[in-house]
Amino acid sequence: MGIFLFAEQVLNGLQLGTMLFLMASGLTLVFGIMNLVNLAHGSFYMMGAYFAATLFKLTGSLVLAAAGAFVGVLVLGMALEIAILHSFYRRDHLDQVLATFGMILFFNELVRMVWGPQAYFLALPEALNGSVELIPGAPYPIYRLIIIVAGLTVALGLYLLISRSRIGMLIRAGASNRTMIEALGVNIRVLFTVVFGLGAALAGLAGTMAGPLLAVQVGMGDSVLITTLVVIVIGGIGSVRGAFLASLLVGLSDTFGRMLLPASLAEMTIYILMAVILYRRPQGLFPAHG
């Protein structure tokens, strides 16, 4: 393998990894704090992509489209949390899996009705369509670099938010001891709604960013959901740090798996990875709950 090809694949792996982290951070936080398994997280990804595609068509501005989609999914997520999901926090995981599975069916069908069954393709504006040579002689698409940078920025922001801010303090406290933050007089309902909405919006952002790379279509959230679940299970459910490392691990393994392995194995790489890791460590790499 040439060094250029290798470097390119590493970047591709990073790009997939950072996208996965956008998905995984919200999902793992919601599980860690509210003890909720939310399969509908992939639907937020899909809705983000559709919102962005529609806004882009209307305004022609990618920035506006991305911002609009972010806000749109944020509102959608908070609305769902308030209307339905908060009453499932104290139910067992099986109930949560089923209820959010019902949501997936709903959203997939909703999209099919509103936007139709055909796939959308988001064209990138000229400025983002080119390549840059990070290493001389090895051009790399600008847009993918932007995704990596955006993803890492969000990861850094999330890290600062959780480790430095008051809301982060509450999130950390909430992950380990729910009654404690209630005792602090914090309105826990609002905190939960905000965290849920934020997680949903990050998933929406991931969907927005995936739009120009993949087809925007019904069910696009399902496959990424499963990959994300693999990520948070490997990382240790509830651990943001674990989610970050597992995102990169899964992103890189998947990318290199596709390049190096025969087709039948390539699709299975990350599942094999997960099975091996869980066999060795049934609680994932960074178990958040002792």
Partner: peptide, 26 residues
């Protein structure tokens, strides 16, 4: 492999194995 794990981990690992089978036949 999977019954060693508990709760959500079990749900996810069985899902992962089924995905492997799915892609295998694809």
């Amino acid at each position: 492999v999977s019954v060693r794990t508990q709760g959500l981990y079990f749900i996810m690992i069985t899902l992962a194995f089924a995905q492997m089978a799915y892609f295998f036949f694809v």
